[in-house]
Design a protein around this nucleic acid. Structure first.
Ligand SMILES: [Mn+2]
Ligand SMILES: [Mn+2]
Ligand SMILES: [Mn+2]
Ligand SMILES: [Mn+2]
Lengths: 217, 217
DNA sequence: CTACAAATTTAGACTCACCTAAAAAAATGT
DNA sequence: ACATTTTTTTAGGTGAGTCTAAATTTGTAG
């Protein structure tokens, strides 16, 4: 049985590696997990011994299939809980991530399957992120950050960054919800900011925000 | 912020002390928490320093008001979660205790208030145990163990022990649910077993079981 | 009142997950 | 090619919560 810390490491490694594509560096992981590089080295050795990742000194770690399946199970739980909190209990979308960080570690397959069933097998969570199924299969969405769109292009919001409560409140205010259509009116070279239209309303959006809105290609 | 271990100690102390009435001994606590006396002594010192309990060497511990309010908050969460699992997700009453042991430690007042509201402010959990309100007020039920009833007496089941899954399956089978009326037909001095009638069905019940069915006085 | 038994505490050690500081390796710039 | 910077690892240590074994206190029976 994996500890809370081990589960969080695997989840972070999975996310940072782009679903296991690339290797993850020690410092990246330390940053993401709010810990120190030395601590990461320790844990990474342990996870490597247990074969959840492969670790090459000074090079980084890659998640194994075994590790991936743990990560996906945790991500599944996180996203199902977030969906439950919003849909069933009436949480706002900026209130759920923190609680889901705790709930994702509850050990009970029965519980998560019942929640999934209760919710009617949702495909995405309140922020637009896809929910892996019980077998760990996840639908990868074709998406890019809003900041990558060219001036004049039209696109649809797929997902938004879920971990920054203030960002989410702001996005709510301007109606930037998954599913909404959006057009890039103009881009400012200088600071990367851009002007967009969402439901015929115009908004100025900073570069920072435009990095956290994912849109269709 | 209290750790999981600290919360579990306070909950056990509260239960073993009969809601704070009597002192709790080191060995009792060790037994209840599945740990060793030496570990209990350590933890008890810590909780005493933090003033959740008062501790007198070789005599035992008593829970303070501060400790009681923590214990009741955890018990509230435990029982609300159990109720949720049974009523909303369709768990059987013997499947919920273990999961609730985990869920009771989730830190979010918003979450538990939403669950309470969603369930319509239930007064008792699936095993008949009263649910403390948000202020930590709990309705103490007038109750005694079935084994204390005299032959011929009639009574109503108030609650049953919730932590033994096999016991619960058995009680389900004989219809021994909270709210059900029951009559003591006969008692066997020798082994403490007794014959009871539940909805005009007769059952032989061992002493052990009769200790875990709580009935009205 | 004393001897033994039972309960409890102390002493010392372990694992987990973390830390700081120092050493070592890799990357970078001239 | 070499010195400097950056990244990573190693070394040694901490606190939480647990353990075993030994010492101490308390309870009990003759
Ligand atoms: Mn989230
Ligand atoms: Mn987490
Ligand atoms: Mn329970
Ligand atoms: Mn617990």
């Amino acid at each position: 049985m994996l500890s809370l810390a081990e589960e969080n490491y695997l989840k972070s490694i999975y996310h940072l590696s782009d679903a296991g594509e690339k290797a993850v560096l020690t410092n990246e992981l330390a940053e993401a997990l709010n810990t120190k590089a030395a601590s990461v080295t320790d844990m990474v050795k342990k996870l490597s011994t247990k074969e959840f990742i492969s670790y090459e000194k000074y090079y980084g770690v890659k998640i194994t299939n075994k590790g991936k399946s743990v990560a996906l199970a945790v991500i599944r739980k996180h996203r199902l809980w977030e969906t439950f909190l919003v849909q069933t209990l009436g949480f706002k979308w900026d209130e759920v991530h923190e609680v889901a960080e705790q709930l994702e570690h509850i050990k009970s397959t029965l519980l998560i399957e019942k929640i999934d069933e209760f919710l009617g097998y949702p495909q995405v969570d309140p922020h637009g992120d896809p929910i892996p199924n019980a077998q760990g299969k996840i639908k990868k969405l074709e998406k890019t950050a809003l900041k990558n769109l060219a001036t004049g292009s039209e696109s649809t919001i797929v997902a938004v960054k879920d971990s920054d409560s203030n960002l989410l409140k702001y996005l709510e205010k301007i109606g930037a919800k998954p599913g909404k259509k959006l057009t890039v009116i103009s881009k400012e070279e200088y600071d990367g900011s851009l002007q967009v239209a969402i439901e015929s309303q115009h908004y100025f959006i900073s570069k920072e925000v435009s990095e956290n809105i994912l849109v269709t290609l």
